[in-house]
Design a protein around this nucleic acid. Structure first.
Lengths: 319, 319
DNA sequence: CTGAAAGCGCTTACAG
DNA sequence: CTGAAAGCGCTTACAG
């Protein structure tokens, strides 16, 4: 039904290989025949079958971005920047969602194994998936670049914010805002949360400011929060608010300040001060693209974490 | 480098066709050989080359969603719902962005022509692109489903909100909020904006309430706005705010109310009342998926607009 | 400059 | 139950 090279070959009374060459701008085919072929191809609305072409080329000129969803800036913005940049380089970026679903994630990793893309960017979910598919990809040196965080590093490359420095800066902001003690809610199970935790702890211990590191928002130490001004540090405003709601009564006299990343998406009333670290998603995307393109050219990239400085720190609200 | 069927065939000392059958669960191959083949395939970490498979199948089990970007709910939510639903049906959804760039859009339409996906959902940009690629897709009866709006209908299918009814309801809300005249900023160049315009006009003329239909926010009729309470109707809060900013002084005595779609993303201070129509993106996605799956099965779908009722109307702020 | 042939990795009638 | 062969639509040495 669709037009094939063969159809054009017959129409022009030449061999299919000549048609192929003409359409690929091979200088060896005569001006005349080339023109004839190009014109009849256009007239017949010929479109090459990429599956066939990929099969012989062994390459797809396609890259994937595996993302848990599209709810946050960390998913939306790298998607857009990567897509723009890569299309300039001749690659199509396919954004593929796994809905925070481990089964879907594994299924998609498996797809990558099946030659559907020349490489992939991955924004992993918070939890570590025990994905044996990684092993297969790693074995074949499949070009993989993690974005923002990584759950099982071992030789991968990850492009992320300079999370340690950013957390330290948020600490400084909160102190300016009057905080005399900190509650830290950063997750430990992914590289970004872990770096933030480390950065905050280090900054605080240097200044000898007490802090409480919590895994779950419902736990806390009431006596610790009782007096003075508490700062709540977390990756999202939602986490900070959930913590606040759980311990509302402790803050009735002295509302806390909060230091978080990217966007404040909740009501601001309960907090005396709000400080944001805006990540440089464009910078992250550019670096990730650079690394991917290097690897596609066969150059080796040192594995590890690549840190991009935060874009800016802003005070959404001040005490 | 990658393992092929042939490698397994040699390892098991059977023909490649037997390997193919065993791996595809063909009941005709003996239990014993099948097990042997499956196990060695697993051991060698065999992964089929989908380009090859697609070439013979003539199908990709892949669908595209062409989206201008990921900034608004209308792009994010259908993407998520479609992706979830379609993966349940055995299709991979590739979200591909064209950045509101006509050249990129045409390039991607052309890709669709090249057998990279079995069908595509399209969220068209506001402006009409004169894309000759459409002709080629249409000629081959390529399954295309437009979402939210359509710029050149002619025989396509579009799933969208019941925009006329929604606009009428927003009119009613604004009247409840005290509006005695309307400024309408809906765009006329796409089906959604056009339907909204029609719906609002009809509702207003029925109630004999005056309205001003504007193409550009900087124009207006000062005497029209002078007294009483104006309602501003537009698709986005930004459009309403831009209009407000242009004519601030006219509203100093009587702040207007606004009726818009989905989300209010700007400051709310200038407006006395704010009414939102939340579209039912899940409903839209489900319908679009239904239609696509029908078409992939070869069933014909009547072309035209499919209207999904709005999800809810809410008052963000009341006078 | 052009054609005939082999091959990319798989599937699937067709024999046996 | 299994193998030999043809074919999906293209590309690319290899001859001429």
């Amino acid at each position: 039904m669709a037009i094939r090279l063969n159809d054009i070959a017959q129409a022009c009374e030449v061999d299919i290989s000549t048609v192929s060459r003409a359409l690929r701008n091979d200088p060896r085919v005569r001006e005349n025949t080339r023109e004839l072929i190009r014109q009849t191809a256009a007239k017949m609305r010929y479109a090459p079958n990429l599956a066939a072409r990929n099969l012989v080329a062994g390459t797809t000129k396609t890259l994937w971005l595996l993302s848990p969803d599209l709810k946050n800036q960390i998913e939306q913005e790298p998607a857009q920047f990567l897509s723009e940049r890569l299309s300039r380089e001749g690659y199509d970026l396919m954004i593929v969602l796994y809905h925070n679903d481990p089964a879907a994630f594994r299924r998609l990793l498996m797809r990558l194994t099946q030659h559907v893309a020349d490489g992939a960017f991955i924004i992993p979910a918070g939890i570590a998936y025990d994905a044996s598919e990684y092993a297969s990809l790693k074995k074949n040196k499949y070009p993989l670049v993690f974005i923002d965080r990584n759950v099982e590093l071992k030789g991968g490359v990850t492009v992320t914010t300079d999370n340690g420095a950013a957390a330290a800066e948020l600490v400084a902001k909160c102190i300016e805002g009057g905080a005399d003690k900190f509650v830290i809610l950063f997750e430990k199970n992914n590289s970004a949360g872990y770096e933030r935790l480390q950065g905050a702890e280090k900054a605080l211990s240097r200044k000898k400011i007490p802090c409480l590191i919590l895994n779950r928002p419902e736990k806390t130490d009431a006596s610790f929060l009782k007096s003075g001004r508490t700062a709540i540090l977390s990756s999202t405003s939602t986490a900070a608010c959930v913590f606040y709601e759980h311990h509302k009564q402790l803050f009735s006299a002295n509302p806390p300040v909060a230091g978080i990343f990217d966007q404040w998406r909740d009501r601001t009333e309960s907090f005396a001060g709000i400080y944001l670290c805006r990540q440089d998603f464009r910078g992250i995307a550019e670096k990730a693209a650079d690394i991917m393109l290097e690897r596609l050219k066969g150059e080796k990239t040192e594995s590890g974490l690549y840190h991009i400085p935060a874009q800016e720190f802003i005070s959404l609200k001040q005490p």
